[in-house]
């Protein structure tokens, strides 16, 4: 779908992309990075709208430097910022955008109606967009990216500004773009957590450099761990430790917390059943995710999350560990 080779983009003051080499395969790919990591810059280059300072990139096998218009007729783009004129209805706007993508008038109208329905916009679509909620606006923005039935969509922070419910709906919709519509997706976010559930592959960049690129399942192994706390009795804790080790889970103890690496979906059930079997009280069971910068650590040294991170990757104030903390599971 997308292949970049040593792609760099330098602005007078900053290096937005630094020798980035990635290969994006069909499916949903999450592009994760903090603010200023270079996500939007990468999208700009992929659409053939900004020249790379160095290196090469191809989208759908077409060179971004020479085949910009061709790429843009086969790719959809959802910007991170607002882009909807308030005095026009969603239908009118999306029809116009469909025609701008080369669809003949009749096809543009037909596909607009279909696409707006698919993103969940019904009667509202005839009203001026100025009165829409953020959630509805994001849906229209998604619809205009999908209306010409592209092979690939580039979604820049589609969950921006949405509340938790709206966020889940948007992520579900994005998942369906691939599973139901067969359109590959590159979606950016600064939260690794929300893309883990949606993406088949994750690419993490920071300061324009590639930190990691792998399938989501590999990712979860490294990044996900489950903190289990039971009512404070030493024997039971040791029993639980043995039981979980016997079940084939990787875990370690810190104080009266057990850190269990999440191997797959069943990990939760195994832990829950083990706790229930021993008859101890479960104080909490909480999924933890590492901060983006911690992904520097390779899987081997990741066994020691308290270990020092080295002086050269300061996560800085923009990485908020709490934001990436997982959800608690009620006992």
């Amino acid at each position: 779908m997308i292949a970049t080779e040593s792609l760099s983009k330098r602005y007078p003051r900053v290096t937005a992309l630094d020798r980035l080499t990635v290969d994006v395969t069909p499916g949903v790919t999450g592009l994760v990075g903090a603010n200023g990591a270079g996500k939007s810059t990468l999208i700009k280059i992929l659409l053939g709208l900004a020249p790379a300072s160095e290196g090469r990139a191809a989208v759908l096998g077409l060179d971004v430097a020479t085949a910009g218009p061709r790429i843009r007729s086969l790719v959809g783009y959802m910007p991170e910022h607002d882009c909807l004129p308030p005095d026009v209805s969603a239908t009118e706007f999306v029809v116009h955008m469909a025609r701008m993508s080369g669809l003949p008038p009749a096809a543009a109208r037909e596909r607009t109606a279909d696409t707006l329905r698919h993103v969940g916009l019904y009667e509202e679509r005839y009203r001026p967009m100025g009165g829409y909620s953020t959630g509805m606006k994001q849906r229209v923005k998604l619809a205009q990216a999908l209306v010409h039935d592209p092979k690939l969509v580039l979604l820049d922070e589609p969950t921006n500004g949405l509340d938790p419910v709206g966020r889940d709906e948007m992520l579900g919709l994005i998942r369906r773009v691939w599973t139901d519509f067969g359109i590959s997706v590159l979606v950016t976010s600064h939260l690794l957590g929300e893309l883990e559930r949606t993406s088949d592959h994750i690419v993490v960049i920071d300061g324009g450099k590639l930190l990691r690129a792998s399938s989501t399942s590999d990712f979860t192994k490294v990044t996900g761990s489950l903190a289990v706390e039971v009512t404070d009795r030493e024997d039971e804790l040791l029993d639980l430790l043995d039981l979980l080790t016997a079940a084939g889970l990787k875990l370690r103890r810190s104080g009266h917390l057990l850190q269990v690496d999440i191997a797959d979906e069943d990990t939760y059930d195994v832990v829950r059943d083990a706790v229930a079997g021993l008859g101890v009280g479960l104080v909490r069971m909480e999924q933890r995710r590492h901060r983006i910068a911690e992904l520097f650590i390779d899987p081997e040294s990741a066994d020691d999350p308290a270990g020092d991170h080295g002086p050269d990757h300061d996560p800085g104030p923009r990485h908020d560990p709490d934001q990436e903390g997982g959800s608690s599971v009620a006992a």
Partner: peptide, 22 residues
């Protein structure tokens, strides 16, 4: 908002490399 979306959002995490486009 619409129910179908909420339902899919609650679906289990994606199996790696889902159904091909065809």
């Amino acid at each position: 908002m619409s129910q179908p979306d909420a339902a899919t959002a609650a679906a289990p995490p994606p199996e790696p490399s889902a159904a091909p486009p065809t």
